[in-house]
Structure formats: C-alpha cells, structure tokens
C-alpha cells in the first residue's frame, strides 16, 4: 500500500515536471558559418512566412505539413545562398541534430531551392495540429525523398560548416 502511494506521488510529480514541460521553452538554433546565429522559439517561427506542403511519411500515408522553409530561415541567419552559393561556398554542408543526438547531413546546395529545385521544410504542424511529443516541436520534412531518414524529429540545432 505504502509502495503504491509512493508510486502515485511519483506519478503526480512526473506530470508536473515532465508531462507538461512547455513546448515554448524548446528552441531551434542555427549556428556555424552564419552572419547571425539564431535561437528560435515556436512563436518566433510562427511569426515568419508559413508554407504548407503534402508529403508521405513512414506510414505511407500523405500528410499536410506546415512550417517555414529552411531556405527562409537560412536567409534570416545570413547563410551564403543564391548568388553567393558558388566557389568555396559550395563546399559548405549542414548538420541537423536532434534532441537525442541523431545527426543527418545535407550539402548547403541541397537546401537552396533556386539551386536544387527542392523544398525542405522545418515543420511544426501536421494535418493542422502541432507535432506530437517525441516528433516535435520541430521536424524536417524533405518531401522529394523516398526514404524519410533525414526527416529528423525533435530537431534542436542546425549547424553550417565548411568541409575542410
């Protein structure tokens, strides 16, 4: 009985400490070879131009994702895109890192729509709802890719680096 009660109390504390940890507190940082490093909250992101697009997730079903194009975020941070994406800047790459430490890589040229013709979205909604815990608050969506392994969940940092 005593043990049971202790379990209950732990559970309650759990709800307070973990269950409701605020999404507002979770941020996304853009760092590295940028003019202005950024740390953005969900509200900062919502204040930027929003894009919706449809793509198939791992479940094989099509969903509508909403968020900000990565290229717009990069523009805001002052990453070399468009006319500046030439010469040595073509040796830049992007490491996207999730809260669990999972990392995936893009070349900078892939992110630039003018260059690659592909949109990469930093999504915060799916089918009109905020991304669920464990996936959001932010996730990458790469609609043209057949395997969603770079659709990194719980994304926390995006770092732009030079290949040395």
């Amino acid at each position: 009985m005593k043990i049971l009660r202790l379990k209950h109390i732990c559970f309650l504390i759990g709800c307070v400490l973990v269950g409701n940890f605020s999404v507002a507190a979770q941020t996304l940082s853009i760092i590295g070879e940028v003019k202005t490093p950024l740390t953005l909250s969900i509200n900062d992101l919502k204040a930027m131009p929003q894009t919706q697009l449809k793509a198939k997730d791992r479940d094989g079903k099509e969903h509508e994702y909403g968020g900000v194009r990565l290229v717009d975020l990069f523009q805001k941070a002052g990453v070399t895109l468009g006319g500046e994406l030439r010469g040595e800047n073509l040796t830049k790459y992007v490491i996207a890192r999730a809260a669990d430490g999972y990392e995936v890589l893009f070349s900078l040229a892939e992110i630039d729509e003018e260059f690659s013709g592909c949109t990469i979205l930093l999504a915060h909604t799916v089918d009109g709802q905020a991304l669920p815990q464990g996936i959001g608050p932010f996730r990458l969506v790469v609609p043209d890719e057949r395997r969603p392994a770079r659709w990194i969940r719980e994304i926390k940092t995006i770092e732009i680096r030079f290949a040395k």
């Binding site: 732990c10 759990g14 400490l17 973990v18 940890f21 507190a25 669990d100």
Partner: peptide, 23 residues
C-alpha cells in the same frame, strides 16, 4: 525505466532540459 527519473535524472542533469528527464 521510470514514470519519472527522480534520483538520477540522466541527461537532464547535463542539459537542464525537462525533456531530457530519464534520458
């Protein structure tokens, strides 16, 4: 392993983020 990690919060002790509790 736990409904909430109290004694040993794991990764949370390093990052200070509640979402890292028990990681």
């Amino acid at each position: 392993l736990d409904s909430i990690a109290v004694q040993d919060k794991g990764r949370q002790e390093i990052t200070g983020e509640a979402s890292d509790n028990g990681r």
